[in-house]
Design a protein around this nucleic acid. Structure first.
Lengths: 225, 225
DNA sequence: CCGGGAACGGCAACTTCTTGCCGATCTGCC
DNA sequence: GGCAGATCGGCAAGAAGTTGCCGTTCCCGG
């Protein structure tokens, strides 16, 4: 059922909105009175966080301490220093709880346990968003979100982990990324091979990697090499 | 011997200039009549390439076909699409020969085999530049540069290599970066383990990596994963 | 139809990595 | 000193990864 340009009612409690502008027009007001905002995003460029954020911030000003804001971002973001700063700023300014995950994550917004917005595919240059008010569906999405939330890492912890790895293993990272064999690397560090390998294992553990290739990718991802 | 603010004569033929602005003031004119420009840089932000480039371009306009320009950049740069485009633009517009290396490289400018500019450390917020006119030193620096030049890869070739790897092994890259074991990965691709491993070997070869960790780093570096 | 070359994959010998185990050291603390 | 806990590193068994060799299959141009 096409209700108007940019809005399709799919069934009771589920509509599809085309394009960010349209989405903002139709759901922007929901944010003004929200007391619980939950949000997953792959980048900082989503409209919630984008040029509209000032307006939102104003609308929400003074109520910030009544609002629980939770956000999940991909750890990739932290690669980019300005983005990382922006994240920290949001955490401090909005009192948002921010977590970080290495997993791909679908852009999701949950408002007051009453409305869910799920980003969908691009079509004709505009992204489609499912706006859901159907209670059972919301329940399900929230449950999924909680799972991701639990498995994600708090921003502060994540920062600490990165710092820890930097402290722990700069030399090991170096040698690994030079393609040096364990024996040679251990000699170069004046360590026993066993100890060097223990270091590598710790490093892989810290990176959450299951193979050296993966560890290499993650290390690079975190800007450690 | 401090000659004036921002310029220190260290010995005959070697001066140290503090800050990019100062460097530009003192050596900018050399570019106007240059017929051979050689340059190594880690990013596009050096003053030669920066906001002054228009003035330079104008000064050099009409003489471009008489000027041999060679530049080396770190392959990191190509990660960033806008930068990569800019590089291609320069190549086409200035007729510059551009090569790419994975090595760290000291910022270096050589003008007409007569002047060498070497970037040094930051001090008081300004980078120091050695401006060298001493012939033997220039000879030495040029020789070093030639070595790096020879070991670097032409931009076009580099692009082709990246394209090749993308074509060759997207699935393999995927599985590797997921930390999947060879046996399982091979099954998933419907290949024999031997063949999968052959693919991995080809990939590592293409990446110039000697260990899987290193391959992971490089793959990520090239934005392949 | 028939070579010839390329891709595939089984096999096997080797190398490299991964880990548990355990004794040797070192360190801080009664 | 003597104990407890952390770190180190040798050893060794086993897992994972690396490569050469070679037979099989498929495709292509003659």
């Amino acid at each position: 059922m096409l209700i108007s340009d940019g809005l399709t009612r799919v069934s009771d409690g589920v509509s599809i909105v085309r394009g960010e502008e349209e989405l903002f027009r139709r759901t922007g007001h929901l944010f003004a009175n929200a007391t619980e905002l939950t949000c997953a995003a792959n980048d900082l460029a989503t409209w919630v966080a984008g040029h509209k954020s000032e307006a939102l911030a104003n609308a929400m000003a003074g109520r910030l301490h009544h609002v629980r804001i939770r956000k999940i971002y991909r750890s990739d973001l932290l690669l980019d220093l300005p983005s990382a700063r922006e994240l920290a700023r949001r955490r401090d300014h909005f009192g948002a709880q921010i977590r970080v995950t290495t997993e791909e994550i679908n852009e999701t917004i949950i408002i007051d346990r009453r409305v869910v917005i799920l980003a969908g595919d691009l079509s004709a240059g505009r992204r489609g968003y499912s706006v859901i008010t159907q209670p059972e569906t919301i329940q399900g999405v929230m449950s999924l979100f909680e799972t991701v939330w639990r498995s994600a890492t708090d921003l502060a912890v994540h920062d600490a982990q990165v710092a820890e790895i930097r402290r722990l293993a700069p030399a090991v990272l170096d040698l690994l990324s030079q393609g040096v064999k364990d024996e040679a690397a251990a000699r170069k560090l004046g360590l026993g091979a066993r100890t060097y390998r223990r270091r590598v294992a710790e490093l892989m553990d810290a990176l959450g990697a299951e193979s050296r290739f993966q560890a290499g990718v993650r290390a690079r991802e975190l800007g450690l090499v």
